[in-house]
Computed example of a mutant assay.
Amino acid sequence: MPLRSSPTARQARLGAELRKLREQAGLSVTEASRRLGVGQTQISNIEASRFGVSADRLRALAHNYSCTDDAFIDALIAIAGERKRGWWEEYRELLPAGLLALAELEHHAARLRIAHTSHIPGLLQTADHAREVFRHAVTPLTPPEVEHRVSFRIKRQVVLYRHDPLPCDAIIHEAALRMKFGGPQVTRAQLEHLLEMGEREHVTILVIPFDAGAYPGSGQSVCYVDGPVPQLDTVQLDQSHGTVLLDDEAQLSKYRNLLTRMESAALDEEQSRDFIRGIAKSLRG
């Protein structure tokens, strides 16, 4: 079996979860390999995502690790059985790996909870708005690089339009709504797009106005990705140096609580729509 040169984010997560199960069972790589009847190198390569793993072997590992959560095991088997690479692979030589990982997470997610302070969430941006955002990237991008990122961002949005659209709850601060990326016309079109998306049954948009004052998580941008089972949830954070993915349970719990508290500081859906309409109306003229 050839070694993988560039495992996907999901493949890496599978290996990490198998390593976590082994450690929770108190088994060394040596003991795990003995119980499975394979060499130590094979266990190490599976956990490092350099090797794939069959459904039967994965069930055997779960049994050896005393894991009896059938839903979790089935979810891991589903990841292990994926053979076809997603559309995002065509960008592998063009964009940072973290962006590809985000698209992969969104494609397989059960639900998204997003909170942004100074930017409109990428899945809800228009192409013109996204283009202006990328033109002001911390590390300057060439015009072709800008267009690659714009097309990638728009393609990510297919998860909101497919036949089984991804449920998406977005919390947006008033600061992001009033940032005039591209001027009044582009900003107005972006706000009108938010209103249109908010009318979709699977999209919820909540606004935190300036008048709300201080609130938990101010200044942070968070994307909480629900996996098929809670053990496979992921938090994605945007940092100046790139995308950061978190999956430790203590971190997941912290960000679930943070998003719930941010939602409590926001206007309800109807009030949020009226608020966005008011800002859009002020840009007409």
Rank of each mutant, 00 (worst) to 15 (best):
L36T: 11
G37F: 02
G37D: 05
G37P: 11
V38K: 02
Q40L: 02
T41L: 06
T41D: 13
Q42G: 04
Q42R: 15
I43C: 06
S44C: 04
S44R: 13
N45L: 10
I46H: 07
E47F: 05
E47G: 00
A48D: 03
A48Q: 05
A48Y: 00
S49H: 03
F51T: 01
F51L: 03
G52I: 06
G52M: 03
V53S: 00
V53M: 03
S54N: 07
S54D: 06
A55K: 06
A55F: 01
A55N: 04
D56W: 01
L58S: 02
L58V: 00
R59T: 04
L61R: 03
L61K: 02
H63I: 06
N64Y: 09
N64H: 15
Y65Q: 07
S66Q: 15
C67I: 02
T68G: 10
T68Q: 14
T68K: 15
D69V: 13
D70L: 12
A71P: 11
F72C: 08
F72A: 09
F72I: 10
F72W: 15
I73W: 03
I73T: 09
D74E: 13
A75M: 11
L76Y: 02
I79C: 02
I79H: 04
A80S: 15
A80D: 09
A80V: 03
G81Q: 12
K84A: 14
R85Y: 11
G86P: 08
G86W: 06
G86M: 09
W88R: 07
E89V: 14
E90M: 12
E90T: 15
Y91R: 06
R92P: 09
E93C: 02
L95F: 13
P96E: 08
P96Y: 05
G98V: 04
L99G: 03
L100R: 05
A101C: 05
L102K: 11
L102G: 08
A103E: 07
A103L: 08
L105V: 08
H107F: 12
A110W: 06
R111F: 13
I114R: 15
A115Y: 15
H116C: 14
T117I: 10
T117E: 12
H119D: 10
I120R: 00
P121I: 11
P121V: 05
G122F: 01
G122D: 10
L124E: 12
Q125T: 09
T126Q: 14
T126H: 11
A127W: 15
D128A: 15
H129N: 13
E132S: 10
E132C: 05
E132D: 12
F134T: 13
R135K: 12
R135M: 13
R135N: 10
A137K: 12
P140K: 00
L141M: 15
T142I: 07
